[in-house]
């Protein structure tokens, strides 16, 4: 397994937003690798920095208010943060594409859906109009929509079908990396299952690597190979699905699992994690999770923690976990 198998490598990525004079640190030194053909689940709460990370990879952050302040991103070994806009455009839609969170607003309301798919096909392929139309119709069929609906407008589709159109757009140029930002969050459960099926099927057919952003551990379980937990703009736990699910090390991850109600138990109330997520314009000095941690240590509020490999292939950013492992091992 050489580096050629690493599709995406993010190193110390930091992103800042400026809003009303305040500086918001959305992403604080995020690093992870994604191997070719595998799916990495990026789990976190709203505002944890997941979408910003994904948008940074494609460099479609809003120009006015946001800035990538540090870090490097390697796509198939090539650093992309230093590429020109023109070179970046060749990557977008072709090598890397994205599925967005809210299908209701992700499509241009006044352009036919078929045309919106064709647009990305034509952008990256010099083929005749007739052929591109045919290909766009193929994509529609692929996501389970009749090709005859090419000439219809987004408002004529339901939420689930709109999301499928978005998927069709994302996949129409056979991207090697797919960034899926909470693709099913806005849909109801039955549609969720359908859409995830579609995504999985296509991913297998095309051997796409995928970064799947979600806050739903169930989705992680069914669709991902690896998982990274993000909190306060940092990765706090990372590893294969199996090791993280079997042995969540970070108190936050543990809290996430505990919040899931058990089928066998009689539960009157859910068990949330106490406290509020950190204010990204005013992050705590030590561990970001410190204020909410059920087992805080003495230097947890003063010392920043590092991401450490606690067991093989299982990384965690927690002093206590490290101590416990050391005392065990």
């Amino acid at each position: 397994m050489s580096e050629n198998d690493t599709m995406l490598s993010v190193r110390d990525l930091s992103v800042e937003y400026t809003s009303e004079g305040k500086v918001i640190s959305a992403v604080n030194g995020v690093s992870f690798d994604l191997k070719r053909g595998r799916t990495l689940g990026l789990v976190g709460e709203t505002g944890a920095g997941k979408t910003s990370t994904a948008k940074s990879i494609m460099r479609i952050l809003p120009d006015i208010s946001s800035r990538i302040t540090a870090g490097e991103i390697y796509l198939e070994g090539k650093e992309i943060l230093c590429l020109s806009e023109k070179e970046m455009r060749r990557i977008r839609g072709r090598k890397v594409s994205m599925i967005f969170q809210d299908p209701m607003t992700a499509l241009n309301p006044i352009i036919k859906v078929g045309e919106q798919i064709r647009e990305v096909i034509i952008q990256h392929n010099s083929i005749s109009k007739k052929e591109s139309v045919a290909r766009a119709k193929e994509m529609l069929e692929l996501v389970g929509i009749s090709g005859d609906r090419y000439h219809e407008y987004p408002h004529q589709f339901s939420g689930g079908m709109k999301q499928r159109v978005v998927i069709a757009i994302a996949l129409s140029c056979n991207p090697e990396l797919l960034l899926a930002d909470e693709p099913t969050t806005a849909l109801d459960v039955t549609i969720q299952a359908q859409v995830m099926e579609t995504i999985k099927k296509l991913k297998e057919e095309l051997n796409t690597s995928m970064l799947l952003i979600t806050h739903d551990l169930g989705v992680v379980a069914s669709a991902c190979d690896d998982v990274a937990v993000i909190y306060g703009g940092e990765i706090i736990e990372m590893g294969s699905k199996e090791v993280v699910f079997d042995n969540p090390l970070h108190p936050y991850t543990q809290g996430l699992f505990e919040a899931l109600p058990e089928m066998e138990e009689d539960a009157e109330r859910l068990k949330p994690i106490g406290g509020m997520p950190p204010d990204p314009s005013n992050l705590p000095k030590g561990c970001f999770f410190g204020p909410r941690c059920p087992h805080p240590g003495e230097n947890c509020s003063t010392e920043r923690k590092q991401l450490v490999e606690i067991e093989p292939g299982h990384f965690c950013r927690c002093g206590r976990a490290l101590k416990m492992e050391n005392s065990n091992g």
């Binding site: 060749r90 607003t105 992700a106």
Partner: peptide, 16 residues
């Protein structure tokens, strides 16, 4: 310009 579908459009790699 702040709309989601503009982000979608940009993600397709089309020109400004």
């Amino acid at each position: 310009i702040r709309s989601d579908f503009i982000t979608t459009a940009r993600s397709k790699g089309i020109s400004q």
